[in-house]
Amino acid sequence: MTANDEDDISLAPPDSYAGQVLDAQLHLLDRQVLDTDGVPVTTVDDLEITDIPIDEPLRGTPAPTIINILTGATLGTRIFGGRPPSSRLTRIPYRDIKDIGVVVTLGVDAEVLDASWPERWVRDHIIAHIPGGHHDPE
């Protein structure tokens, strides 16, 4: 069963694959990222892939792969245009991803990630100083 049978007639049938198929816009971008304990960390604001040579024939070069989830400053440039310098990118390594479903689950604790420093900063400098913030609500 395909999306639009009428105009698919001229198209070759879709490829099938052994592994999980992810269309970046549809299955990855803007998805919630959870840490290994299910605590929200951030969203997938963009992806970093291995470099593709410009103006060179690609025949024979291996297909690019995803190396990092990008977050933070990338969101602004994705929405409003432009491109942040590579040094300003906040990265979560692809190798830390445990599962990709409706949410992206990491195999590590949020505390060790660069991506969660603003949360830690607000917690340590503001929220932790207000009495009662360490307890469960009653």
Partner: peptide, 23 residues
Amino acid sequence: IAQFFGWSWGKFRRPIKAARFHL
């Protein structure tokens, strides 16, 4: 705000576990 940016949120967490949400 927290859900848009993917921050930790919710009253079922202690405030220090959802710092930006409370801020």
